[in-house]
């Protein structure tokens, strides 16, 4: 099975406090720790498990600038066979539709049976997989947390729905799936693993290479444009307890008792 996994390099929200820069044009990017989008990492692990079971190969692809190479390499260290970086000045400022359009053009240069994306990334949009599938006219399922390969034409997938229940579906290949966290336990990638793939070539493809004719990419093609970043005005918000730890605990235990929080 030929599997493609679409991945994104994002600021790691577990490692950073995200702040808006002075003029609200961006987030404060100095000293940010970046990593591969959490959901994508599960998608790559799933691809590895499928390949190891039924054979084939895995390509990881990212639309981004040169820095995105670092996450492609990380996922190759994890076990992906190849990496492709789709990068061009003309891609900058693309909206979700633009990114899906770029990926589609890249995908048409290859030959894949299964495409995985993360269920969402740092912008919480959850849009790339569904748009890409519709553009390719392939079937799609979102929020997938079970994949069973039936044969080379069919798979069974479980979608996670409300209450943690699972919606089981049968799907024809080729198809696109967006992967939910928890589908597996992504393996650890050590420095040694990264070193092993350090010299592997990651081709960088631009507009000409993928023969992208569409005008819907880049800032000018975007139907959805970000105007600014801002910190939401706090509503009532929590009363923050101040003082020494002892004083805080005094107050807190008193409150908890009053509210029936200590039995």
């Amino acid at each position: 099975m030929e599997i493609l996994v679409c991945i994104k390099r994002v600021p790691d929200t577990a490692e950073n406090e995200i702040e808006v820069n002075r003029d609200g044009s961006d987030i404060e990017r100095d000293d940010l720790v970046y990593s591969v989008n959490e959901w994508d990492n599960y998608a790559v692990e799933e691809a590895i498990q499928i390949r190891d079971k039924v054979g084939g190969s895995i390509t990881v692809v990212s639309v981004g600038d040169e820095d995105a190479e670092e996450v492609l390499r990380r996922e190759m260290a994890m076990g992906a066979d190849k990496g492709i970086l789709l990068s061009d000045n003309a891609f900058e400022g693309s909206d979700g539709e633009g990114v899906a359009t770029i990926l589609k053009a890249g995908i048409e240069k290859g030959n894949y049976d299964l495409i995985l994306t993360g269920a969402q990334a740092d912008d919480g949009a959850g849009q790339i997989g569904g748009m890409l599938a519709a553009m390719l006219d392939w079937p799609y399922a979102s929020l997938v947390n079970i994949i069973d390969i039936v044969d080379d034409k069919t798979i069974k997938v479980g979608r996670e729905i409300a209450g943690g229940n699972q919606e089981m579906n049968e799907m024809d290949l080729p198809c696109v799936l967006s992967i939910q966290t928890g589908i597996n336990e992504p393996r650890y990638v050590g420095i040694r693993g990264i070193r092993k793939v350090a010299s592997m070539e990651i081709p960088m493809l631009g507009v000409k290479d993928i023969e992208l004719l569409s005008e819907s990419v880049g800032k000018s093609g975007a139907k959805v444009k970000r105007l600014d970043y801002f910190v939401p005005e706090l509503g009532e918000g929590a009363e923050i307890l101040e003082g020494s730890t002892d004083e805080i605990i005094d107050k807190l235990t008193e409150l908890l008792k009053a509210k029936g929080g200590i039995k």
Binding site: T13, I18, V20, F230, P232
Partner: peptide, 9 residues
Amino acid sequence: EYSGQVNTH
């Protein structure tokens, strides 16, 4: 964006 840490217009 970023799990609600910042908003955008």
